[in-house]
Design a protein around this nucleic acid. Structure first.
Lengths: 339, 339
DNA sequence: TTGTAGGCGTTATCAA
DNA sequence: TTGATAACGCCTACAA
């Protein structure tokens, strides 16, 4: 169809050699007489020939594309991950197919099938909890790396944050700053939320603070859902004196809720969460968070994937990266509060 | 290579028909005896057959992939665009190849070549100014839609904001609120910056306010660059009483600079810019901006592209969408300032 | 060292 | 209505 479509055959004719010779010159490996090599390269130049990657992929049964399947690229965590992945891929000569699942298992399945049908070299995937039980039986026969979420009982490369530990530290930080009634909003679709809840609960227990069911909520990781649930939690008879949120979208909704209720931070209520975003430092007070090393997570995931593509039988690895507690004004100790 | 790789040939054998018949059943167009159709569908089901899209693409000379080439997916504007594009693509059965160019003309060329080599159905592209002169001579023979930036002298579908007009309105808003010394930070890599500068200058002229060269800066659209240049502008003998920024990254850097200089907004200085981000409403005071309809821009670009893919000879269109001025606290009138 | 030829999995043409 | 068969563009035994 394409006008400028010039194939290896035409190059061969132009150079007066066979297509095999052209192919050899291009793969640059084999022995080709310098003179012929020269002729071929001139023909390539003259005709502006570029190998058709589709044909190459069909023939070689592999491709230079990897898939990146996340819930929503607009989640700053995934935005950053995707950039890091794309960078690594670019350096390796790969390109990235971007897929948003909206935490919808159906879309996840569809995209996994697409990855198979399209013969990608591999996939970096952040799955919902629902899909995971099916994961073993699903038709993914390509290399895969899981990011951000853990998949128990499946032998697969994984890059994770130390979620339990990070949530524990974040919660302990609040407690040691004098906060006791710590409301917590967790995403309900991922294992990450569960793990962070565990860290939160362990920290409370370790400090002898009872769990209050009304202070623990699970929700879709969306701004609106979070706004709504945070607002209702703020209207409890014994409203929390601190809010812990398990990702930046939930934090955004919670902050909107605090603003709408005219509460000052941290005088009326503290706010902490996960993920560095442009705004955690821009709002006043700045927000105390666990910063995830998103660049490194993305880069590590890509590295793992390329290693597995290179050596499919390689033993799988689970890499756990540490989050960093960034203490800021939103969780200033009670005794420092204005009276 | 793949274990589960089952081809049309095996389906044909299983069903006791030819591959042609299987193909016909799958493309569902041709006339096939119901009984055979049934047998084929059973075989497909039994073998879990899925067509190999690479082979299909090679044969049909078209693909179900589109390219999205932007400067940086982490720019909230492009984050949002990419999500909208992916949504539209998904609905049309296409998937999206994501490319970050970092405003680097070399990377732009490489990615455009990749798009050609990979035989994508089309490309949505946000080009630098540098690449545009080459654009006509570059080997892009695929359908293309330009977003966010204008390409003069090239006949190509385009989706744009009314940049001149929007910047004019934003500047006029500042002026009518009593601000006179309006510093402005524009991105230097895109036509967008230039157009917004024009709107800014026209507004000043229309109100009889002289242009001050020191108040006009061009920079890489990055937070750090913006922070640096904003800081130096704030240290001018006659520092600006308002800052206009041409995208959200520049606005972010400028806001950091204001914070670092301990200036209050809008008492000491006003701040306005382009693009809705999570934080324009979360910081206090909220930031006055021109909101771009990113969802619509992305959707429109995708629509244009699919239409062009369907009818390559279709006359090109330039679609200009209107930005919306969102007046907020960061540009409150001078006479309302605390004295 | 070079060329011929077959096949990757599809679809489309042409006979039957 | 169905089935051989020939491409799509590339790579790679194998033969020369």
């Amino acid at each position: 169809m394409r006008s400028g479509m010039v194939s290896i055959k035409e190059v061969a004719e132009e150079a007066g050699v066979s297509t095999a010779t052209v192919s050899r010159v291009l793969s640059s490996s084999d022995h080709v007489r310098p003179e012929l090599r020269q002729r071929v390269m001139e023909a390539v130049e003259k005709l502006q020939y570029r190998p058709n990657l589709v044909a190459r992929s069909l023939r070689s049964q592999q491709s230079n594309t990897i898939g990146l399947i996340v819930s929503d690229i607009r989640n700053p965590f995934f935005t950053s991950i995707s950039r890091a992945v794309e960078d690594s891929a670019y350096k390796q000569g790969f390109s990235v197919l971007l897929c948003n699942t909206d935490e919808d298992p159906e879309k996840e399945k569809i995209y996994l099938q697409l990855m198979r049908d399209t013969n990608v070299a591999g996939v970096i995937f952040s799955p919902t909890r629902q899909i995971m039980s099916d994961l073993a039986s699903l038709p993914f026969d390509f290399p895969m790396v899981i990011v951000d979420r853990s998949v128990p009982d499946v032998d697969v490369d994984t890059v994770l944050l130390d979620n339990v530990e990070s949530a524990y530290r974040l919660t302990s930080h609040l407690i040691s700053n004098g906060f006791r009634r710590i409301g917590a909003l967790f995403g309900e679709t991922s294992t990450t939320g569960i793990q962070r809840q565990r860290g939160y609960e362990e920290a409370l227990k370790a400090h002898g603070i009872p769990l209050v069911p009304e202070y623990i909520k699970h929700l879709q990781p969306r701004v609106e859902a979070s706004y709504k649930i945070a607002t209702s939690m703020l209207q409890l008879p014994h409203a929390p004196d601190a809010l812990l949120t398990s990702n930046s979208l939930i934090m955004e909704g919670a902050l909107q809720a605090l603003r709408a209720c005219n509460l000052s931070i941290p005088e009326d209520i503290a706010l902490v969460g996960f993920d560095e975003t442009p705004w955690t430092l821009l709002v006043q007070p700045a927000i105390t968070i666990i910063a995830q090393p998103t660049d490194e997570i993305g880069k590590t995931a890509a590295d793992l994937l390329f290693q597995r593509i290179a050596i499919p039988t390689r033993p799988t690895r689970q890499i756990i990266l540490k989050g960093q507690l960034m203490v800021r004004g939103s969780s200033t100790p009670l005794h420092l509060k204005a009276m």
